[in-house]
């Protein structure tokens, strides 16, 4: 029994997704239109396929050797947390500040220590992206001021 094998985990995830799809498909209704396949038809077919492949992977994983590959290390974790935080609250953060802060944080995480680079690049990237989108294309980007 290898519960932590990557195939076991992915199989379980697929089964969970299939269960979610099925539970959400059941009360979908039929909607308008003539007599045809219901809106839940294709999702249910997909769910069935996921159950089959999920179960197959689960069983294969249980019998296999080896464990999960490492999902995170410190650097990925830092980049990921910064990314999740910034992109999730994208609407609430001034884009000039957000791009600058994210770039700086990522560069630090990658071990870039050259002061000139750390000062110039985040500012430059933030300025270029902001100016080209908001002035060039008149896109209204989130800003505080």
């Amino acid at each position: 029994m290898n519960i932590l094998h990557k195939d076991t985990v992915s199989g379980a995830a697929l089964l969970a997704l299939a269960a979610l799809v099925v539970s959400m498909s059941l009360d979908m209704g039929t909607g308008a239109g003539g007599e045809t396949l219901t809106p839940s038809f294709v999702p249910l077919i997909c769910a069935a396929g996921l159950v089959v492949s999920g179960a197959f992977l689960l069983l294969r994983g249980l019998r296999a050797e080896g464990g999960m590959p490492a999902i995170l290390d410190r650097r990925i974790a830092i980049v990921m947390i910064a990314l999740v935080f910034y992109l999730w609250f994208f609407h609430a953060i001034d884009v000039r500040f957000g791009v600058w802060a994210f770039t700086l944080a990522t560069m630090l995480a990658f071990g870039i220590r050259a002061p000139l680079m750390l000062i110039l690049y985040p500012v430059a990237l933030s300025a270029i992206l902001y100016l080209s989108f908001s002035w060039g294309f008149r896109v209204v980007l989130p800003t505080w001021i």
Binding site: V79, Y86, F102, T106, M107, F110, L125, L141
Partner: peptide
């Protein structure tokens, strides 16, 4: 381009 520069650049470009 070193990944330390590439990663933030592409992430930010994609977001905007």
């Amino acid at each position: 381009i070193p990944p330390g520069i590439l990663v933030p650049t592409i992430c930010m470009m994609a977001a905007i």
